[in-house]
Design a protein around this nucleic acid. Structure first.
Lengths: 231, 231
DNA sequence: CAAAATTGTGGCAAAATTGTATCAAAATCG
DNA sequence: CGATTTTGATACAATTTTGCCACAATTTTG
């Protein structure tokens, strides 16, 4: 991934420089500004990945800036200010700020908070996108695409077949009873013969075999099925 | 949307109750615990949408708890503590905390921070990527002009068709359910037959094919659609 | 070993889902 | 306002999935 770009805006040039040096040491790209208008223009020209802004600035104050940017962008914003009253903090956080730090603050704490925000964004991103992909034996089971792949190509499981294989893979090395499968995959209310599970297993085995996989679904006699990860 | 569920853990029962009453007034569901083990067990049994935890607690301390939960879950965590040293704050934020508040704190500020975190999550969810030209297979999808182009010429998608193709392209390699499409593109309140999505897909496929593109929209049986980037 | 219980296999048809064509309502536009 | 485009609905055809059956094969049990 490219270095993340952070814009800092504070009318005290010294503070800008201190924060900047710390953030650069942590591997971020940083640009500094000394009033609200210039950071807004810079952001419109080239969006940053995170903004650190002071409340009291010439031209445009931090609150207005925060609200303005939030109308168009979801960029994370950290507000830093000498104003430490409860109402200031609440205003800042409510107008779109992701965090509010009161001066004087420790640069290390700022960095920890910056990283925490980026981690939050990553967590949210992977949450939406990547469910857990399971690789078992020579089969890749991907719940995002709802495909099981051998050697890079889809082995063509149907929805139900996929769910069953995924469930067994999640519970590998544990025998899963037919009743558990009926409960979890078919649903409690669904009235269906117990042998329906055998049918699904039959079809999955066939498709695995046709694809050329050596993954085996073991039968646990009088109980159910299991997948054993045989190294 | 359902009410969000928040778990609070603090060995001072009074603090739990104060926070709880404020959060409930704001429309959250809240449960309180007085040590680290009980909140962990509760979370394992039924995950909450956000955790507020104290550092100094019996059984399991807040730092360990934070690290433990973060191994398996991306639930947002706010740490509250009487420990106000820089190193404590940094430790808390680094171990997975989304925020760190030092006691005594204003309940209103806590609420503002809770809301700020939920807003961040919503922003991350909706803004996958904005106004970004996507090239997929042989098709160029340009959200600025709202045109999809093959070989430099517009293939003539309508507005809705374009939005659908763009959404699928943004989420390529992930199966998107019909309900997700209805929510995100038609809008939650809009009551429309599920089959409306099929109609759009049909029209997009036809226009892609007429234009001469080889881009394929896959049907995920019993679920929805997806675009797979086939190299 | 033989009977009973359980599982594997192939085929089949009902049920569910999707594709297609057509049409009318709704929106857009000049 | 009228013409055109867009878009959702309906009906029906085509396809896919999946439960079930009958029977063979296998395993357990006495």
């Amino acid at each position: 991934m490219d270095k993340r770009l952070i814009y800092i805006s504070d009318d005290e040039i010294n503070i800008c420089n201190i924060i900047k040096s710390f953030l650069i040491k942590e591997g971020f790209n940083v640009e500094t500004f000394n009033d609200g208008r210039s950071i807004l223009e810079a952001f419109n020209a080239k969006p940053a990945d995170l903004l650190v802004i002071d409340i009291m600035m010439p031209e445009i104050d931090g609150f207005s800036l925060c609200a303005t940017i939030r109308q168009k962008s979801s960029v994370p914003i950290i507000i830093v200010s000498a104003k430490d009253t409860e109402s200031d903090k609440i205003a800042g956080l409510t107008l779109g700020g992701d965090d509010y730090l009161t001066k004087p603050f420790s640069p290390m704490e700022l960095i920890a908070r910056v990283k925490s925000i980026f981690r939050r964004i990553e967590l949210d991103k992977t949450n939406v996108r990547n469910n857990h992909v399971i690789k078992i034996c020579d089969i890749l089971i991907n719940p995002n695409t709802k495909q099981a792949e051998f050697d890079g190509k889809n082995i063509g499981l149907t929805g139900m077949e996929f769910n069953l294989l995924y469930y067994l893979a999640e519970n590998k090395d544990r025998a899963v009873s037919r009743n558990e499968l009926l409960d979890k995959l078919w649903g409690f209310e669904n009235e269906v013969e117990t042998r329906a599970t055998d049918d699904m297993i039959k079809r999955i085995r066939k498709k695995l075999s046709i694809a050329g996989s050596v993954l085996k679904i073991d039968t646990v006699w009088g109980f159910g099925f299991k997948i054993v990860e045989n190294i």
